[in-house]
Measured scan of single mutants.
Amino acid sequence: MDALKSAGRALIRSPSLAKQSWGGGGRHRKLPENWTDTRETLLEGMLFSLKYLGMTLVEQPKGEELSAAAIKRIVATAKASGKKLQKVTLKVSPRGIILTDNLTNQLIENVSIYRISYCTADKMHDKVFAYIAQSQHNQSLECHAFLCTKRKMAQAVTLTVAQAFKVAFEFWQVSKEEKEKRDKASQEGGDVLGARQDCTPPLKSLVATGNLLDLEETAKAPLSTVSANTTNMDEVPRPQALSGSSVVWELDDGLDEAFSRLAQSRTNPQVLDTGLTAQDMHYAQCLSPVDWDKPDSSGTEQDDLFSF
Rank of each mutant, 00 (worst) to 15 (best):
I74S: 00
S135I: 01
I108W: 03
F48G: 01
T200G: 15
G26F: 05
C119F: 01
Q187T: 05
K127F: 00
A76Y: 08
G45S: 08
A208R: 04
R39D: 05
Q20R: 12
A78N: 00
S265T: 02
A241C: 09
V88G: 03
G189P: 07
K62S: 06
D291I: 10
T100W: 05
V236P: 10
R196A: 09
K91Y: 06
G45F: 05
R29M: 09
E177W: 14
A221V: 07
H125G: 00
G26H: 05
F306I: 01
A263Q: 15
S298R: 08
S49L: 12
N229K: 09
K123F: 05
T300Y: 11
S265W: 02
T300A: 09
S175H: 12
M124K: 06
S260P: 02
D253A: 11
V161S: 07
L50Q: 01
G54I: 01
I98S: 01
Y52F: 03
N110E: 08
M55N: 04
P202V: 05
R9S: 09
V75A: 00
T231L: 06
A130K: 00
V88S: 08
R9P: 12
A76M: 08
L147G: 05
L107H: 12
L215F: 07
T100I: 07
Q106M: 08
K204T: 05
C148L: 01
C119L: 03
T56P: 02
T100P: 00
P15F: 01
T231A: 12
L31H: 12
L141P: 15
T218Y: 02
C148F: 01
S140A: 10
T77V: 14
G23V: 14
L213P: 15
L47C: 09
K294L: 09
P222M: 13
Q155V: 06
S6R: 13
F259M: 02
E177S: 15
N211E: 09
D304C: 05
T38H: 11
E64T: 12
Y118R: 11
S117D: 02
K220R: 08
Y131W: 03
L57V: 07
E109H: 02
T100K: 11
M46C: 10
M233T: 12
T149K: 11
W35E: 15
G45V: 14
V247W: 09
A68Q: 01
T77A: 10
E65A: 15
R9V: 07
E170G: 05
G189M: 02
F259H: 12
A76E: 09
G82E: 01
R27Y: 05
R151L: 00
K84C: 12
K84V: 05
L159W: 09
L287A: 05
I12K: 08
G8Q: 07
A263S: 12
Q240T: 11
G210H: 10
Q155R: 14
S265L: 15
P269F: 02
H125K: 00
G299Y: 14
P61C: 13
E217A: 14
S135T: 12
A258Y: 05
S298K: 05
H28C: 13
V247I: 11
R9N: 12
S21R: 15
I108Q: 07
I98E: 02
T36L: 14
S288E: 04
V161A: 06
D101Q: 11
G190L: 03
K62E: 02
T200M: 03
P32D: 11
T104M: 09
E170D: 03
D296L: 04
L47I: 03
S297Y: 05
N105D: 08
G23Q: 03
A162F: 04
A121L: 04
M124E: 01
A241Q: 06
K72M: 15
I12A: 12
S14N: 10
D122T: 00
Q60V: 13
G63M: 04
A278W: 09
L147R: 00
V58M: 15
M281Y: 06
K179G: 15
N110R: 14
N232M: 04
D296T: 08
L305R: 09
L251S: 08
H144S: 10
G63S: 13
R238L: 13
L42K: 15
A185S: 14
Q163T: 15
S93Y: 15
N268Y: 08
R261P: 10
T218N: 08
K83I: 06
A185T: 12
D280L: 05
L43K: 15
A258E: 05
L276V: 15
L215V: 12
A68C: 01
G25E: 14
R95V: 15
E217C: 03
L255S: 02
Q285W: 08
G63F: 12
T56K: 01
A154R: 00
T77Y: 11
S288N: 04
K19Y: 13
K123Q: 08
H137S: 15
S135G: 09
G45P: 07
M55V: 10
A156M: 15
G82V: 14
D214Y: 06
S16W: 12
P94Q: 06
S14G: 12
L141N: 15
G26A: 15
